[in-house]
Design a binder for these strands. Structure first.
Lengths: 196, 196
DNA sequence: GAGATTTGCAACGCAAGCGTTGGATATGCT
DNA sequence: AGCATATCCAACGCTTGCGTTGCAAATCTC
Protein backbone atom coordinates (compact mmCIF):
# COMPACT_ATOMS: atom_id res chain seq x y z
CA UNK A 1 0.00 0.00 0.00
CA UNK A 2 1.38 3.35 -1.06
CA UNK A 3 2.10 6.11 1.44
CA UNK A 4 -0.55 8.68 1.53
CA UNK A 5 0.22 11.26 4.14
CA UNK A 6 -2.25 13.79 2.88
CA UNK A 7 -5.09 11.30 3.02
CA UNK A 8 -4.07 10.17 6.50
CA UNK A 9 -4.06 13.75 7.71
CA UNK A 10 -7.40 14.41 6.11
CA UNK A 11 -8.95 11.38 7.76
CA UNK A 12 -7.55 12.31 11.13
CA UNK A 13 -8.87 15.83 10.87
CA UNK A 14 -12.26 14.68 9.72
CA UNK A 15 -12.40 12.37 12.70
CA UNK A 16 -11.25 15.16 15.02
CA UNK A 17 -13.99 17.46 13.78
CA UNK A 18 -16.61 14.82 14.53
CA UNK A 19 -15.28 14.02 17.99
CA UNK A 20 -14.65 17.61 19.09
CA UNK A 21 -18.05 18.66 17.79
CA UNK A 22 -19.74 15.85 19.65
CA UNK A 23 -17.91 16.06 22.96
CA UNK A 24 -16.01 19.33 23.09
CA UNK A 25 -12.38 19.79 24.00
CA UNK A 26 -12.62 18.34 27.48
CA UNK A 27 -14.82 15.41 26.55
CA UNK A 28 -12.79 14.20 23.60
CA UNK A 29 -9.89 11.76 23.83
CA UNK A 30 -7.03 11.49 21.38
CA UNK A 31 -7.43 7.75 21.53
CA UNK A 32 -10.95 7.94 20.16
CA UNK A 33 -10.10 10.37 17.41
CA UNK A 34 -7.43 7.97 16.23
CA UNK A 35 -9.63 4.90 16.55
CA UNK A 36 -12.48 6.50 14.64
CA UNK A 37 -10.05 7.28 11.82
CA UNK A 38 -8.58 3.79 12.03
CA UNK A 39 -5.12 5.25 12.47
CA UNK A 40 -2.60 5.13 15.25
CA UNK A 41 -2.74 7.78 17.94
CA UNK A 42 0.88 8.73 17.49
CA UNK A 43 0.18 10.19 14.04
CA UNK A 44 -1.93 12.88 15.67
CA UNK A 45 1.04 14.09 17.67
CA UNK A 46 3.55 14.15 14.82
CA UNK A 47 1.13 15.84 12.46
CA UNK A 48 -0.78 18.21 14.68
CA UNK A 49 1.02 18.61 17.99
CA UNK A 50 -0.84 18.15 21.25
CA UNK A 51 -4.55 18.08 21.88
CA UNK A 52 -5.16 21.79 22.24
CA UNK A 53 -3.16 22.54 19.10
CA UNK A 54 -5.22 20.00 17.23
CA UNK A 55 -8.36 21.62 18.52
CA UNK A 56 -7.16 25.04 17.41
CA UNK A 57 -6.29 23.68 13.96
CA UNK A 58 -9.70 22.12 13.58
CA UNK A 59 -11.43 25.31 14.66
CA UNK A 60 -9.36 27.43 12.33
CA UNK A 61 -10.04 25.25 9.31
CA UNK A 62 -13.67 24.51 9.89
CA UNK A 63 -14.93 27.80 11.23
CA UNK A 64 -13.63 29.62 8.24
CA UNK A 65 -16.07 27.47 6.35
CA UNK A 66 -18.91 28.56 8.61
CA UNK A 67 -18.12 32.23 8.14
CA UNK A 68 -17.93 31.80 4.40
CA UNK A 69 -20.82 29.35 4.40
CA UNK A 70 -23.89 30.86 2.86
CA UNK A 71 -23.22 33.16 -0.07
CA UNK A 72 -24.78 36.60 0.13
CA UNK A 73 -24.21 39.08 -2.63
CA UNK A 74 -26.96 41.60 -2.53
CA UNK A 75 -30.22 41.99 -0.70
CA UNK A 76 -32.96 43.53 -2.76
CA UNK A 77 -35.63 43.52 -0.10
CA UNK A 78 -37.03 41.91 3.06
CA UNK A 79 -37.84 38.69 1.22
CA UNK A 80 -34.20 38.31 0.27
CA UNK A 81 -33.25 38.69 3.93
CA UNK A 82 -35.75 35.99 4.82
CA UNK A 83 -34.35 33.74 2.11
CA UNK A 84 -30.89 34.29 3.51
CA UNK A 85 -32.07 33.42 7.02
CA UNK A 86 -33.64 30.26 5.66
CA UNK A 87 -30.43 29.32 3.88
CA UNK A 88 -28.42 29.81 7.06
CA UNK A 89 -30.90 27.62 8.92
CA UNK A 90 -30.53 24.94 6.26
CA UNK A 91 -26.78 25.18 6.48
CA UNK A 92 -26.94 24.54 10.22
CA UNK A 93 -29.16 21.54 9.60
CA UNK A 94 -26.74 20.11 7.05
CA UNK A 95 -23.60 20.77 9.08
CA UNK A 96 -24.49 20.32 12.72
CA UNK A 97 -20.86 19.61 13.64
CA UNK A 98 -19.72 23.01 12.48
CA UNK A 99 -22.49 24.76 14.36
CA UNK A 100 -21.53 22.90 17.48
CA UNK A 101 -17.88 23.80 17.06
CA UNK A 102 -18.89 27.43 16.82
CA UNK A 103 -20.89 27.21 20.02
CA UNK A 104 -18.11 25.39 21.79
CA UNK A 105 -15.69 28.05 20.75
CA UNK A 106 -18.01 30.64 22.25
CA UNK A 107 -18.16 28.79 25.55
CA UNK A 108 -14.44 28.23 25.80
CA UNK A 109 -13.80 31.93 25.71
CA UNK A 110 -10.40 31.58 24.12
CA UNK A 111 -8.10 34.57 24.41
CA UNK A 112 -7.34 34.47 20.70
CA UNK A 113 -9.89 33.37 18.14
CA UNK A 114 -8.20 31.17 15.52
CA UNK A 115 -8.16 32.61 11.99
CA UNK A 116 -9.80 35.74 13.33
CA UNK A 117 -8.68 37.91 10.43
CA UNK A 118 -9.98 35.88 7.55
CA UNK A 119 -13.19 35.07 9.38
CA UNK A 120 -13.68 38.76 10.13
CA UNK A 121 -13.31 39.44 6.43
CA UNK A 122 -16.02 36.96 5.60
CA UNK A 123 -18.38 38.48 8.13
CA UNK A 124 -17.54 41.92 6.89
CA UNK A 125 -18.88 41.09 3.45
CA UNK A 126 -22.14 39.90 4.98
CA UNK A 127 -22.50 43.05 7.04
CA UNK A 128 -21.64 45.16 3.99
CA UNK A 129 -24.48 43.55 2.06
CA UNK A 130 -26.89 44.60 4.79
CA UNK A 131 -25.64 48.17 5.09
CA UNK A 132 -25.66 48.58 1.34
CA UNK A 133 -29.26 47.43 1.14
CA UNK A 134 -30.11 49.82 3.95
CA UNK A 135 -28.49 52.77 2.21
CA UNK A 136 -30.41 51.95 -0.93
CA UNK A 137 -33.61 51.94 1.14
CA UNK A 138 -34.33 48.37 0.16
CA UNK A 139 -34.62 47.14 3.73
CA UNK A 140 -35.27 48.71 7.09
CA UNK A 141 -32.54 50.93 8.48
CA UNK A 142 -33.77 51.31 12.01
CA UNK A 143 -31.36 48.66 13.28
CA UNK A 144 -27.66 49.16 12.46
CA UNK A 145 -26.49 46.82 9.71
CA UNK A 146 -24.06 44.83 11.80
CA UNK A 147 -26.63 44.30 14.53
CA UNK A 148 -29.32 43.35 12.05
CA UNK A 149 -27.07 40.81 10.37
CA UNK A 150 -26.04 39.41 13.73
CA UNK A 151 -29.63 39.09 14.91
CA UNK A 152 -30.67 37.32 11.74
CA UNK A 153 -28.01 34.73 12.48
CA UNK A 154 -29.34 34.55 16.04
CA UNK A 155 -32.81 33.66 14.78
CA UNK A 156 -31.39 30.89 12.61
CA UNK A 157 -28.87 29.54 15.12
CA UNK A 158 -30.76 29.54 18.42
CA UNK A 159 -32.72 26.42 17.51
CA UNK A 160 -29.45 24.49 17.38
CA UNK A 161 -27.88 26.18 20.39
CA UNK A 162 -30.62 25.28 22.84
CA UNK A 163 -32.74 22.50 21.34
CA UNK A 164 -33.93 21.55 24.80
CA UNK A 165 -35.42 25.00 25.28
CA UNK A 166 -37.24 24.73 21.99
CA UNK A 167 -38.66 21.41 23.07
CA UNK A 168 -39.86 22.75 26.39
CA UNK A 169 -41.35 25.90 24.90
CA UNK A 170 -43.17 23.94 22.24
CA UNK A 171 -44.41 21.31 24.65
CA UNK A 172 -48.03 21.85 23.68
CA UNK A 173 -47.43 22.02 19.95
CA UNK A 174 -44.07 20.54 19.00
CA UNK A 175 -41.93 22.45 16.53
CA UNK A 176 -40.84 20.63 13.42
CA UNK A 177 -37.91 21.73 11.27
CA UNK A 178 -40.48 23.12 8.87
CA UNK A 179 -42.48 25.15 11.34
CA UNK A 180 -39.27 26.46 12.82
CA UNK A 181 -38.00 27.47 9.43
CA UNK A 182 -41.28 29.14 8.61
CA UNK A 183 -41.33 31.13 11.85
CA UNK A 184 -37.73 32.15 11.37
CA UNK A 185 -38.36 33.45 7.85
CA UNK A 186 -41.37 35.45 8.92
CA UNK A 187 -39.36 36.94 11.74
CA UNK A 188 -36.51 37.83 9.38
CA UNK A 189 -38.95 39.48 7.01
CA UNK A 190 -40.38 41.58 9.81
CA UNK A 191 -36.95 42.68 10.99
CA UNK A 192 -36.00 43.75 7.50
CA UNK A 193 -39.24 45.52 6.64
CA UNK A 194 -39.21 49.31 7.21
CA UNK A 195 -41.54 50.59 9.88
CA UNK A 196 -44.46 52.60 8.57
CA UNK B 1 -17.77 24.85 65.49
CA UNK B 2 -21.23 23.43 65.08
CA UNK B 3 -22.07 21.04 62.29
CA UNK B 4 -23.66 22.76 59.39
CA UNK B 5 -24.44 20.27 56.71
CA UNK B 6 -26.82 22.50 54.85
CA UNK B 7 -24.28 25.30 54.60
CA UNK B 8 -21.59 22.88 53.46
CA UNK B 9 -23.84 21.53 50.77
CA UNK B 10 -24.78 25.01 49.68
CA UNK B 11 -21.15 26.08 49.36
CA UNK B 12 -20.25 22.98 47.42
CA UNK B 13 -23.08 23.48 45.02
CA UNK B 14 -22.28 27.14 44.57
CA UNK B 15 -18.73 26.18 43.76
CA UNK B 16 -19.89 23.46 41.39
CA UNK B 17 -22.08 25.91 39.50
CA UNK B 18 -19.13 28.22 38.98
CA UNK B 19 -16.75 25.50 37.85
CA UNK B 20 -19.18 23.68 35.59
CA UNK B 21 -20.29 26.95 34.04
CA UNK B 22 -16.71 27.98 33.40
CA UNK B 23 -15.31 24.69 32.11
CA UNK B 24 -18.21 22.40 31.32
CA UNK B 25 -18.60 18.81 32.45
CA UNK B 26 -15.44 17.49 30.84
CA UNK B 27 -13.23 20.41 31.81
CA UNK B 28 -14.17 20.49 35.46
CA UNK B 29 -12.44 18.46 38.18
CA UNK B 30 -13.97 17.41 41.46
CA UNK B 31 -10.75 18.45 43.14
CA UNK B 32 -11.18 22.03 42.05
CA UNK B 33 -14.82 22.25 42.99
CA UNK B 34 -13.87 21.14 46.49
CA UNK B 35 -10.86 23.41 46.75
CA UNK B 36 -12.82 26.45 45.60
CA UNK B 37 -15.37 25.73 48.32
CA UNK B 38 -12.61 25.10 50.87
CA UNK B 39 -14.08 21.69 51.64
CA UNK B 40 -12.79 18.19 51.22
CA UNK B 41 -13.46 16.39 48.00
CA UNK B 42 -15.00 13.43 49.70
CA UNK B 43 -17.99 15.50 50.78
CA UNK B 44 -19.00 15.83 47.16
CA UNK B 45 -19.30 12.09 46.82
CA UNK B 46 -21.28 11.46 50.01
CA UNK B 47 -23.64 14.36 49.35
CA UNK B 48 -24.08 14.28 45.61
CA UNK B 49 -22.84 10.98 44.21
CA UNK B 50 -20.40 10.96 41.33
CA UNK B 51 -19.47 13.71 38.95
CA UNK B 52 -22.24 13.31 36.43
CA UNK B 53 -24.86 13.10 39.15
CA UNK B 54 -23.52 16.31 40.63
CA UNK B 55 -23.69 17.93 37.24
CA UNK B 56 -27.29 16.80 36.80
CA UNK B 57 -28.18 18.14 40.24
CA UNK B 58 -26.62 21.49 39.49
CA UNK B 59 -28.41 21.73 36.16
CA UNK B 60 -31.72 20.79 37.69
CA UNK B 61 -31.49 23.36 40.46
CA UNK B 62 -30.03 26.22 38.51
CA UNK B 63 -31.84 25.92 35.22
CA UNK B 64 -35.15 26.02 36.94
CA UNK B 65 -34.06 29.47 38.00
CA UNK B 66 -33.34 30.43 34.41
CA UNK B 67 -36.73 29.30 33.22
CA UNK B 68 -38.44 31.16 36.02
CA UNK B 69 -36.00 34.05 35.75
CA UNK B 70 -37.67 37.08 34.31
CA UNK B 71 -41.25 37.59 35.40
CA UNK B 72 -43.76 38.09 32.65
CA UNK B 73 -47.39 38.54 33.46
CA UNK B 74 -49.03 40.27 30.60
CA UNK B 75 -47.91 41.96 27.42
CA UNK B 76 -49.94 45.00 26.51
CA UNK B 77 -48.10 45.83 23.30
CA UNK B 78 -44.89 45.65 21.29
CA UNK B 79 -43.08 47.93 23.75
CA UNK B 80 -43.80 45.49 26.55
CA UNK B 81 -42.26 42.71 24.45
CA UNK B 82 -39.19 44.87 23.92
CA UNK B 83 -38.99 45.58 27.63
CA UNK B 84 -39.18 41.86 28.30
CA UNK B 85 -36.39 41.19 25.81
CA UNK B 86 -34.27 43.86 27.50
CA UNK B 87 -34.93 42.31 30.90
CA UNK B 88 -33.87 38.88 29.64
CA UNK B 89 -30.72 40.42 28.21
CA UNK B 90 -29.98 42.04 31.57
CA UNK B 91 -30.59 38.76 33.32
CA UNK B 92 -28.00 37.08 31.11
CA UNK B 93 -25.55 39.85 31.91
CA UNK B 94 -26.09 39.46 35.63
CA UNK B 95 -25.97 35.66 35.65
CA UNK B 96 -23.50 34.59 33.00
CA UNK B 97 -22.94 31.24 34.74
CA UNK B 98 -26.54 30.21 34.35
CA UNK B 99 -26.58 31.18 30.70
CA UNK B 100 -23.48 29.14 30.13
CA UNK B 101 -24.96 26.15 31.91
CA UNK B 102 -27.95 26.39 29.61
CA UNK B 103 -25.73 26.42 26.54
CA UNK B 104 -23.66 23.55 27.84
CA UNK B 105 -26.76 21.57 28.45
CA UNK B 106 -27.76 22.19 24.84
CA UNK B 107 -24.43 20.94 23.56
CA UNK B 108 -24.35 17.85 25.72
CA UNK B 109 -27.56 16.60 24.19
CA UNK B 110 -28.60 14.66 27.26
CA UNK B 111 -31.24 12.00 26.73
CA UNK B 112 -33.28 13.35 29.62
CA UNK B 113 -33.41 17.03 30.50
CA UNK B 114 -33.26 17.42 34.28
CA UNK B 115 -36.37 18.94 35.87
CA UNK B 116 -37.99 18.97 32.47
CA UNK B 117 -41.51 19.13 33.84
CA UNK B 118 -41.19 22.11 36.10
CA UNK B 119 -39.10 23.98 33.57
CA UNK B 120 -41.66 23.25 30.91
CA UNK B 121 -44.29 24.73 33.19
CA UNK B 122 -42.30 27.91 33.57
CA UNK B 123 -41.87 28.25 29.83
CA UNK B 124 -45.51 27.49 29.31
CA UNK B 125 -46.50 30.56 31.29
CA UNK B 126 -44.23 32.72 29.12
CA UNK B 127 -45.68 31.30 25.95
CA UNK B 128 -49.17 31.75 27.33
CA UNK B 129 -48.51 35.44 27.90
CA UNK B 130 -47.57 35.80 24.25
CA UNK B 131 -50.53 33.89 22.86
CA UNK B 132 -52.91 35.77 25.12
CA UNK B 133 -51.56 39.10 23.89
CA UNK B 134 -51.90 37.86 20.33
CA UNK B 135 -55.51 36.81 20.83
CA UNK B 136 -56.28 40.23 22.29
CA UNK B 137 -54.71 41.80 19.21
CA UNK B 138 -52.17 43.64 21.31
CA UNK B 139 -49.19 42.26 19.43
CA UNK B 140 -48.58 40.72 16.04
CA UNK B 141 -50.05 37.29 15.45
CA UNK B 142 -48.26 36.40 12.25
CA UNK B 143 -45.72 34.27 14.10
CA UNK B 144 -47.10 31.53 16.39
CA UNK B 145 -46.81 32.48 20.07
CA UNK B 146 -44.36 29.77 21.05
CA UNK B 147 -42.08 30.59 18.13
CA UNK B 148 -42.27 34.30 18.79
CA UNK B 149 -41.39 33.83 22.45
CA UNK B 150 -38.56 31.50 21.52
CA UNK B 151 -37.15 33.91 18.96
CA UNK B 152 -37.28 36.81 21.41
CA UNK B 153 -35.08 34.73 23.71
CA UNK B 154 -32.82 34.02 20.75
CA UNK B 155 -32.27 37.71 20.16
CA UNK B 156 -31.36 38.24 23.81
CA UNK B 157 -29.23 35.14 24.23
CA UNK B 158 -27.19 34.98 21.03
CA UNK B 159 -24.82 37.70 22.19
CA UNK B 160 -23.74 35.46 25.06
CA UNK B 161 -23.74 32.24 23.05
CA UNK B 162 -21.29 33.42 20.40
CA UNK B 163 -19.49 36.52 21.68
CA UNK B 164 -16.66 35.87 19.26
CA UNK B 165 -19.07 36.16 16.35
CA UNK B 166 -20.37 39.45 17.65
CA UNK B 167 -16.81 40.73 17.90
CA UNK B 168 -15.97 39.72 14.36
CA UNK B 169 -19.17 41.10 12.89
CA UNK B 170 -18.73 44.40 14.69
CA UNK B 171 -15.08 44.70 13.79
CA UNK B 172 -15.56 48.11 12.20
CA UNK B 173 -17.79 49.51 14.90
CA UNK B 174 -17.55 47.50 18.12
CA UNK B 175 -20.77 46.64 19.90
CA UNK B 176 -21.12 47.70 23.51
CA UNK B 177 -23.60 46.18 25.93
CA UNK B 178 -25.70 49.30 25.40
CA UNK B 179 -25.77 49.26 21.62
CA UNK B 180 -26.49 45.56 21.70
CA UNK B 181 -29.35 46.07 24.10
CA UNK B 182 -30.72 48.89 22.00
CA UNK B 183 -30.59 46.82 18.79
CA UNK B 184 -32.20 43.89 20.53
CA UNK B 185 -35.11 45.98 21.82
CA UNK B 186 -35.76 47.52 18.43
CA UNK B 187 -35.75 44.07 16.90
CA UNK B 188 -38.14 42.77 19.54
CA UNK B 189 -40.46 45.69 18.91
CA UNK B 190 -40.49 44.99 15.20
CA UNK B 191 -41.22 41.30 15.71
CA UNK B 192 -44.15 42.13 17.96
CA UNK B 193 -45.64 44.90 15.85
CA UNK B 194 -48.45 43.80 13.53
CA UNK B 195 -47.77 44.11 9.83
CA UNK B 196 -49.71 46.82 8.05
C1' DG C 1 20.18 -2.77 -4.18
C1' DA C 2 22.44 -0.45 -0.04
C1' DG C 3 21.73 3.20 2.73
C1' DA C 4 18.97 7.14 4.14
C1' DT C 5 14.44 8.82 5.01
C1' DT C 6 9.71 8.77 5.78
C1' DT C 7 5.47 6.62 7.35
C1' DG C 8 3.39 3.83 10.57
C1' DC C 9 2.35 1.46 15.01
C1' DA C 10 2.36 -1.32 19.50
C1' DA C 11 3.77 -0.74 23.84
C1' DC C 12 5.19 2.09 27.53
C1' DG C 13 5.97 5.87 31.23
C1' DC C 14 3.80 9.08 33.71
C1' DA C 15 0.54 12.42 35.49
C1' DA C 16 -4.16 13.74 36.47
C1' DG C 17 -8.19 12.93 38.30
C1' DC C 18 -12.07 9.84 39.97
C1' DG C 19 -13.88 7.68 43.74
C1' DT C 20 -12.80 5.27 48.47
C1' DT C 21 -11.18 4.18 53.02
C1' DG C 22 -9.78 4.50 57.67
C1' DG C 23 -9.60 7.32 61.23
C1' DA C 24 -10.23 11.76 63.82
C1' DT C 25 -13.27 15.14 65.75
C1' DA C 26 -17.66 16.91 66.97
C1' DT C 27 -22.46 16.19 68.45
C1' DG C 28 -26.56 13.57 70.38
C1' DC C 29 -28.58 10.25 73.50
C1' DT C 30 -29.27 7.87 77.94
C1' DA D 1 -19.61 9.95 81.55
C1' DG D 2 -19.97 6.57 77.93
C1' DC D 3 -21.72 4.83 73.74
C1' DA D 4 -23.60 5.72 69.19
C1' DT D 5 -23.80 8.55 65.29
C1' DA D 6 -22.90 12.14 62.13
C1' DT D 7 -19.50 15.21 59.97
C1' DC D 8 -15.21 15.86 58.10
C1' DC D 9 -10.65 15.04 55.86
C1' DA D 10 -5.80 13.29 54.60
C1' DA D 11 -4.06 9.82 52.20
C1' DC D 12 -4.50 6.09 49.07
C1' DG D 13 -5.63 2.77 44.94
C1' DC D 14 -6.67 2.56 40.50
C1' DT D 15 -8.23 3.90 36.00
C1' DT D 16 -7.94 6.83 32.12
C1' DG D 17 -5.81 9.25 28.90
C1' DC D 18 -1.81 12.24 27.38
C1' DG D 19 2.32 12.21 25.04
C1' DT D 20 6.74 9.31 23.81
C1' DT D 21 9.87 5.82 22.35
C1' DG D 22 11.83 2.12 19.95
C1' DC D 23 11.23 -0.60 16.13
C1' DA D 24 9.28 -2.35 11.59
C1' DA D 25 7.80 -1.66 6.97
C1' DA D 26 7.53 1.15 2.91
C1' DT D 27 9.49 4.55 -0.20
C1' DC D 28 13.20 7.38 -2.09
C1' DT D 29 18.10 8.30 -3.57
C1' DC D 30 22.14 7.29 -5.93
Amino acid sequence: MAWNTAETKRRLKESAVAEFAAHGLGGTTMERIARRAGINKERLYTYFGDKSQLFATVLADELNKVAAAVPLDSLDGPEAVAAYAGAVYDYHAEHPELTRLLLWEGLLDLPEVPEEDSRTDYYRTKVAAFTRAQQANLISADIPGADLAFLILALAGWWYAVPQMSRMMHADDPATPDTAREALMRAATKLATPAV
